[in-house]
């Protein structure tokens, strides 16, 4: 064979997928009920909104930044979506579909604010987005007054209830989102620019890439995907409140990094994120199937993210981190 199959690069590239397969084998061996259609659908439903969040933050991580605003962003867009939905008639047929483009726009707007604070005020993205996230959560509390907003529309809830081949519609929506992200990242000039900025910002700048604008558009895209996540989450729960976005931050960043998107930027893509999200949710589900209590989840995420960052770090190329 001319090409060696077992190189370091190949190992790193395929490791997440192998881990996912190994985990599925392990849980099936312990309890065969794991690999039933019902259980797989359960995993897919649980993972669909988180997958959209993770895909959104993938754009940001690939350009070497980080976004911690998703919890607030999702809470706010979810709440606004419910309000708009009710305002426009309360059923999709009556014109409530207008809420969907409106909320996508709102999500993109939040992303834009995020990007502007980060790029124009030159504030590190983790702090800029953390602050914006707090502001959004505050805004969500403000508009709801602490109440729960419910949506009761069978047509909209079809996202959860209408099943094709055993999987509900929202799973296909999420899958479509991954494909869109993959096309953007791998087949557009903008996608290449994201990788260029993540791989080496100064080089990208010197090659004529408008780094500031790429960062802005990256944050707008992320905001757009968070809004999709918010809509799916509302479809899943049938309601929204100011804590709808809780837990998504840790979950999505861990998933993305576990899938092989390097925190340093420039490496990974939409498929990595998909595999990462599946790993995290297969573990979650598997632990429940084995009979472990669900409060182990956050601790497990903490351990996972640290292992993933350590494994994906090239120690020769960095001198220190903050």
């Amino acid at each position: 064979m001319a090409k060696r199959l077992l190189t370091y690069e190949n190992a790193v590239r395929w490791a997440p997928l192998l881990v996912l397969l190994a985990l599925m084998l392990l849980f099936t061996a312990i309890n065969p009920a794991f690999l039933t259609e019902r259980n797989l659908a359960r995993i897919a439903i649980a993972a669909a909104p988180a997958l959209m969040v993770a895909v959104g933050v993938t754009f940001i991580i690939i350009m070497g930044s980080i976004d911690l605003s998703m919890e607030g962003s999702i809470s706010l867009t979810a709440v606004l979506f419910c309000f708009a939905f009710v305002q426009f008639g309360g059923t999709l047929a009556a014109g409530a579909w207008l809420a969907v483009p409106l909320i996508l726009l709102a999500g993109a707007g939040i992303g834009l604010v995020n990007g502007l604070v980060h790029v124009r005020l030159r504030i590190p993205s983790f702090m800029a987005s953390l602050a914006i996230g707090f502001v959004c959560t505050g805004a969500a509390i403000l508009v709801t007054g602490g109440d729960i907003v419910k949506i009761d529309d069978d047509v909209f809830r079809a996202l959860l209830t209408w099943r094709i081949l055993g999987f509900p519609l929202m799973v296909y929506v999420a899958a479509l989102g991954v494909v869109v992200a993959w096309v953007i990242l791998s087949h557009t000039r903008f996608g290449r620019h994201l990788y260029a900025v993540g791989g080496g910002e100064e080089l990208a700048h010197a090659s004529g890439v408008n780094v500031g604008r790429v960062r802005l558009v990256g944050f707008v895209l992320a905001g757009l995907f968070y809004a999709v996540a918010a809509i799916l989450q509302v479809a899943k729960l049938g309601q929204a409140e100011s804590v709808t976005g809780a837990n998504f931050m840790f979950l999505s960043i861990t998933s993305t990094v576990v899938g092989g998107v390097a925190l340093w930027g420039g490496i990974g893509g939409a498929w990595n994120t998909l595999v990462g999200v599946l790993i995290v949710f297969v573990i979650n589900n598997g632990m429940v199937v084995i009979g472990l209590p669900d409060y182990v989840q956050n601790g497990m995420l903490g351990v996972l993210v640290i292992i993933a960052v350590i494994l994906s770090t090239d120690r020769r190329s960095i001198s220190f981190v903050k």
Binding site: I253, G299, V305, I306, V309, F320, V321
Partner: peptide
């Protein structure tokens, strides 16, 4: 330790330790 010796950025390592704390508190 994870920030300095393993090069995990502090916002991630402390977020992770925070997750462990939350699990411990719930347990």
């Amino acid at each position: 330790y994870f920030t300095t010796r393993q090069f995990v950025p502090s916002f991630i390592s402390t977020l992770a330790v925070g997750g462990v704390c939350f699990s411990m508190a719930q347990w």
